[in-house]
Each structure stands twice: as structure tokens, then as C-alpha cells.
């Protein structure tokens, strides 16, 4: 399993549009991807769960990727977060 932390910088937090794009990125991967805040992890392929975390600007999330090619996927997701959130 590969995991990394990221602090959300977008003033609006994880709002609907980037959440949708993130879920799409995660869904393209066969293994499992979770996103969590304060120890609560949700499936990153499910948009309602991701949105209901209610992550605000300045809060830290933990992304965990598990499965074949997890390192590349983690890098890709990290780059996505840096560019969009």
C-alpha cells in the first residue's frame, strides 16, 4: 500500500467539481483507493462519500492506494490534487 498526505489549498475545499474529477481519476484504477480525514476513510471511487467528508481549505487528507501499479497511481493522484485543490 502507498499512502500520502495532502493539505487542501482551494479556498472552497473539496467542492463538487474537483471531487468529481478526483473520483474519475481514482475509478480508472483497478485496485482500491481511499481518501480520509481525521482517521475516517471513504472509498475514493464514490463521489457522495468523498463529498460528505466535507473537507475544507487547510484540512489535511490522507490518500491510500493499494494494488498493482499503486506508486504511479499515487503520484498521479498527488499531481492531480496539487493542480486542482
Amino acid at each position: 500500500m502507498t499512502e500520502f498526505n495532502y493539505t487542501i489549498k482551494d479556498p472552497a475545499g473539496i467542492h463538487a467539481r474537483p471531487a468529481g474529477l478526483f473520483v474519475k481519476e481514482a475509478a480508472a484504477f483497478d485496485g482500491t483507493v481511499t481518501i480520509g480525514k481525521n482517521g475516517k476513510d471513504v472509498d475514493a471511487k464514490r463521489i457522495l462519500g468523498v463529498m460528505s467528508l466535507g473537507v475544507k481549505s487547510g484540512e489535511q487528507i490522507t490518500v491510500k492506494v493499494d494494488g498493482a501499479g499503486e506508486k504511479e497511481v499515487a503520484d498521479k493522484l498527488k499531481a492531480f490534487l496539487e493542480a486542482n485543490l
Binding site: G20, V23, K24, D43, K45, R46, I47, L48, G49
Partner: peptide, 8 residues
């Protein structure tokens, strides 16, 4: 995406 959400 919401319509594809497995929880839903």
C-alpha cells in the same frame, strides 16, 4: 458520477 456512486 453520483448516479454511478455505489453507495447510492
Amino acid at each position: 458520477l453520483m448516479l454511478d456512486d455505489l453507495d447510492y
